[in-house]
Design a protein around this nucleic acid. Sequence first.
RNA 1: GCCCGAGUGGCGGAACAGGCAGACGCAACGGACUUAAAAUCCGUUGUCCCUUGUGGACGUGUCGGUUCGACUCCGACCUCGGGCACCA
Length: 820
Amino acid sequence: MAKYDFAKIEKKWQKKWEESNIYEITEDLKLTKKYILEMFPYPSGNIHMGHVRNYSIGDVVARYGRMKGFNVLHPIGYDAFGMPAENAAIKHGVHPRKWTYENIDIMRDQLKSLGLSYNWDREVITCDPDYYKWGQWLFLKFYKRGLVYRKQSKVNWCSSCETVLANEQVEGGGCWRCSTLVEQKELEQWYFKITDYTGPLLNDLEKLKGWPERVKVMQKNWIGRSEGAMVDFILKDGKTVTVFTTRPDTLFGCTFFLLAPEHLLVDELVKGTPYEEDIVKFREKVAKETEIDRTSAEIEKNGCFTGTYIINPVNGREVPVWIADYVLMEYGTGAVMAVPAHDERDFAFAKKYELPIELVIQPAGEDLSSGLDKAYTGEGLMINSGKFNGMPSKEGAKAIAKFLKEQNKGELAVNYRLRDWLISRQRYWGNPIPIIYCDKCGIVPVSEEDLPVILPDDVKITEKGGSPLAKHERFVNTVCPRCSGPARRETDTMDTFTCSSWYFLRYCSPNEGKLPFDGSAANYWMPVDQYIGGIEHAIMHLLYARFFTKVIKDMGMCEVEEPFSNLLTQGMVIKDGAKMSKSKGNVVDPNEIIKTYGADTARLFILFASPPEKELEWSDQGIQGSYRFLNRVWRIVVRNIESSKKGDDTGLDDTDRELLRFVHKTIKKVTGDVERFNLNTAISAIMELVNANYKYYDDKGEGKVNSDLLTEVNEKLLLLLAPFAPHIAEELWETMGKIGSVHLGKWPTFDEKLAKAEEIALIVQINGKVRDKITVSADVSEEEMKKTALSSEKLKQFTEGKEIVKVVVVPKKLVNVVVR
RNA sequence: GCCCGAGUGGCGGAACAGGCAGACGCAACGGACUUAAAAUCCGUUGUCCCUUGUGGACGUGUCGGUUCGACUCCGACCUCGGGCACCA
């Protein structure tokens, strides 16, 4: 018997599949499509185990879909713009372009060595001018629709990456990429107006039935909808200052008023007063502290009195106006009504500065009138609130809002946490923002026919000193498209998340030359039926991609409003209980594994060791187990082929029927498991079938096997195995003498009658405890079950001298006898 | 602090709608084959107890509840992991 030579087999079939282009597809309206997509990789040079897991899962889904008769789109590409390319340039003096394309070549080879069934001819590389041109085109369309604007404000700045970051890219006060503490900088930057789509982005989450609840919750929290009211307070000079509050019911308990230190009104209020000096000092201090102090767990609240008072619209009371570091300019209106009795932060602030605390909500069954040691933030009955006294707080909130509305001093309002998406990056290796600054005409978008704005190659990339493009004279200096006078180009590039926000649309028609994608192709393929990737993209990428899709739909370019119908978030691959990392020295290199055991073993193990959503602990012994299994498959299939040449096949005896039953049972189990992504148990079911096949020889004796049966077992086994271990399945399929690829074969169907056992073990319980197991016919009636159970010898010792109270019968499963 | 998710043998994990807890794999142990080893094939393997049987008790983080019956449902708690974190 020839040995299982995985290296030879895998090379052979990868070549054949490529030559025959067996996964080629076209938009065929007669066929039902399936768009299977895994998040495309950043070309860092080598694939890691996370990629192997991601792409192995996707490949099973794609191959299964194809065998089920769907027209399957399963593309791959590279998210090729980004910082690591520039870092490599600084470190090794390689040009980012060269570094990136070389890495893509390496990674493409590695992905091919895994035997993944991609539509390779649809590859998308985001740093290709053919692709980024359309990113610029979309930027201009967004600009025309008023979804792009430039604004001066405080932004997150990473001093290590030397660029600004979007809010989503700040994690725990540090840069999402390098963890450097993020600073605040006052800069003029480009923004995408994602807040125009807050409503649909939030509400359409409900439509995403195929998304994990967890991801939807994370997006929901990120968007952060709060219901409450806008309330107008009036300064002594008659000027109105509006606040947002979620608790209008506590309005009577407002004992002071707070402004964000950056609030524009502050200057006006203190100018020329004795308070000016302290306020200025305080503001400077806050400006310096910013994120560093704000990230520590328990921060003391600091503030400073402005010397002015403001009038509460419900009771006309004058309360002092302070500025406080915990009031954020970016949320709400940058002003807050402080109710220390019912807000923890206000309470701490009031205690520190000895400001009055007034109870206005009385909780049920508790007397708080003797003083508070902490704020009461729950519901209750309103007190000290004039005509609203005695009202439940929830009702009171609405009543006060209604009252304010009548007085024209406020109204119900909804506020969101989501802020606009800052897309400017002071980096070279990204998509240039297609904007020109003209002294005469101001900000002028690049004309469509001048796209793409080509990213020049001849730049000097240095570690310090800002954007390299800004120093590139020929790039910067241009002419104004409007007045033809001298003008300067924008030198910032776009956040790379803009590139990954629409690549799934490009895959539908990757060679389209007149538009980002062909509308009819997109309408055929979209939405993505199954998207697979890491949980780390739960907010950023998935939110941005949803935003782009919605805008593109509103532009009339594609009909879908949500890009990904079903989402599978795979768990991390860990080793020794920790994420694989160079510094921990626990990295397992996929190339080594493929070299030692082959791609099929690598794929099989990674799918078998854990369900896709869960963490996967890498095990060197585990991979040997998978390797052992494939060898076992190899031997039994070859043995079956040989036996079927000389076996006897005159009818089926009990042992034959048992194996046939096992085949059908396994098809049923594997089909159901793959549909539900229980890939680990699907593989275990295939293992059981192989074990049953071995047992069959033991039971039967070598010479007496049924040849037709063994041919059928082989055929079904290889079809089931094909999505998981494509090379070995194909090789054995050929060895069997089959014409055509196993991967173009039909997914096997099962016969429910054949899958069913002829006999079942009837479980007999006394008071819920198993006392006997009796073999009975599978079509046993409930009456027979009861009779059989009660006649059990073993039961006697438990029922003797006791009264049978009740007999519970679960059809075709068990009988529970209740005794007393 | 708030919001999710998870706790099952020595280990990874299974039990799909409340009905045999521990499938499958790893590790370990035993047998066959071999001069021997590896590989392979066949077994055993949750814990404890005794009168060693076709025996019994216990057992899915802890405590309680619902039920004829609970890994599964309900309540409280503990531990771990993740997300958000001055959001008014």
